[in-house]
Nucleic acid binder design. Structure first.
Lengths: 205, 205
DNA sequence: GGCACTTGTCAACGCTGTTGACATTTGGCG
DNA sequence: CGCCAAATGTCAACAGCGTTGACAAGTGCC
């Protein structure tokens, strides 16, 4: 028999999420996508949670490959952008991986790469450690905030952003004068651009 | 009638989470805690999601009170520190709040306050919007990362950090040279200090 | 062939969020 | 007061969920 394997299931599961969104994901839908009985999945994963963790691991693969050999700043910047992208690809799964006790290989490689570039750039031990934590926190934070929008299409995002700006613009100007005034300026550009802007300011500091 | 109000429901719901954990929370359990029919909640909240968001906003109550009237930088800094502390106090609910843009009372006041201080400091419309997003992303990100540790005691945290440092120190030095070298420097000080350091560097930028 | 083992299938359990119909209480108004 | 409308509470029910246990079908090995 052996039609199903862990890798096959993980691929199909990520495919389901990509197509129908994370909230729509369920073991039953996954079974349908695999054209197999939903409970067959439990022959390969102890629980839905274990499957989700495996999906999270899959998403982190390849983040440190082929980084530009340019300046330390460009390299670290690119790495942070990729980490955020990987987190955004599967937001709920990324949080699961982050909380897991055993630190995974990909995570270790990311840490090593960032530290190496910072040290090469002349950062001292303390300074490199602080900079590393600051970069990771901003990166993960940006991903966490933007994760809700990640499942939307491009048109859907701009539409939602427009709704938010409209909502801000319609607030009581006597209570929220600055929010009303700056409503049109909020959520400027894409979320990616906002993150990279923040990242640049942090790298400035 | 009117036994139930939004505030009453939110309080009871947070109480349920505090006592039994976030995963155990359900509309039916909440109804039981309120000694009322679970579906009565739907007379006050359109959906479970709306209730959860209201619970998240409740946790942010009072963060803008009595802010120092010092420089814009100190004021914004203090506000970010408080937001992070509020998020860490209820790690489960923090996940819900960070997903959506601020549309609730407390969230709106936070946004307004930050924008006001930035504008007073001479930031242009675009610059203020970008700075606002950068600050929030770092703050929420730090809270997201540290939330797993928030439930630990002070001793427990230092012990876990020590374990992590030991784990890094025992890595293969040929593969992770910088991680091994900087193992003792990682996770410097408390999580609060790390966040405030990052915040200062971002404010520098 | 026969046996052990893995894997797929099916029905079922208890749980979930949510809805619509119905009953009850409340508040305003003559 | 009585009356009506709105708001709120109650109940049964729906569709869906993750998961389990019993059973069937296929696979590899002696």
């Amino acid at each position: 028999m052996a039609r199903l394997t862990r890798d096959l299931i993980v691929s199909a599961a990520i495919d389901v999420i990509d197509r129908h969104g994370y909230e729509q994901f369920s073991v039953r839908k996954l079974g349908e996508a695999l054209d197999a009985d939903p409970t067959a999945i439990y022959r390969h994963f102890r629980s839905r949670d274990e499957l989700l963790r495996a999906m999270g691991d899959r998403c982190l693969a390849g983040v440190v490959d082929d980084l530009p050999v340019a300046s330390w700043r460009d390299c670290v910047r690119e790495l942070c952008v990729r980490i955020r992208a990987a987190n955004l690809a599967q937001p709920a799964l990324a949080t699961l991986v982050r909380g897991a006790p055993p630190r995974h290989d990909n995570e270790l490689q990311i840490t090593e790469t960032i530290l190496a570039r910072l040290r090469d750039a002349g950062f001292g031990a303390e300074a490199a450690a602080f900079a590393y934590h600051a970069l990771i926190e901003l990166t993960i934070g940006s991903a966490a905030i933007d994760s809700t929008m990640a499942s939307e299409t491009m048109d859907g995002r701009t539409r939602i952003y427009d709704e938010w700006r409209a909502h801000y613009a319609e607030l009581d100007a006597t209570i929220f004068p600055h929010s009303v005034e700056l409503a049109a300026s909020l959520y400027p550009g894409t979320a990616d651009e906002r993150f990279e802007h923040a990242l640049d300011r942090l790298l400035d500091g």
